[in-house]
Amino acid sequence: MKTPALLALALLAVSMHASAQDAAGTPQQSPAPASGTTQVKLCDNKTTVQVSKDAPKTREEGQKISDSLMAQWKAANPGKDWVQAEVEAHQVVTPEDNSKLVGTGQSSTYGAVTQQDVQVWNNETYKMAVYGSTVFHSSDELGSDIAVSCDMCHPRAANTHPETYPKFQPQLGRVALLRDMINWCIEHPVRGKVLAPDDPKMRALEAYILAQRKGVPLDYGKR
């Protein structure tokens, strides 16, 4: 059974998806307001760019126009759809559904768990994992000197086996937590700067990697 909380989230996602699609649609040509130039308008009817009539009608030139429109739209809509955009590209496993707790509760002080409580928990938890996904998939976010990101070796966090930590990692000469291995990967294959254990990016990376292994039993120490 789909939970109301998840449904709500999914609906939100779909509506955001739709608006993003509309906003970022194909450029349309409209009548020129000034002589010598053509105004090209994005399908949101707001974003425009002026193009010289003499501009060569090449694919490359066309792409420049489209790039310019997109850049403007993104600047005008900062962060509007980052969760949806990330989830669309990299499906992130959703957190445990807690809706069965709605209406329950053991203390009169706080009363019963509400639909809204569950939704907040769910949304915030998911967002952390989704942010982890953006870091995981971005060599820039990771600060890589060699344009390498985690997903290049670990698509959807495959073979990251977070359930096996802590374990003795011979090549580190010590017992490693998941974050130690993440940092090793950041320093060596990714060639970036290691993150502090409480760095928001480190926390989010852990969240994403653990999220993708939902349901796998813990098996610390496994080689």
Partner: peptide
């Protein structure tokens, strides 16, 4: 030794070894 120079990858050193 433990980081950039990668020594520890082969020269593991700890109280058990």
């Amino acid at each position: 030794f433990n980081g950039k120079a990668r020594c520890v990858s082969c020269h593991m050193i700890n109280s058990s070894n």
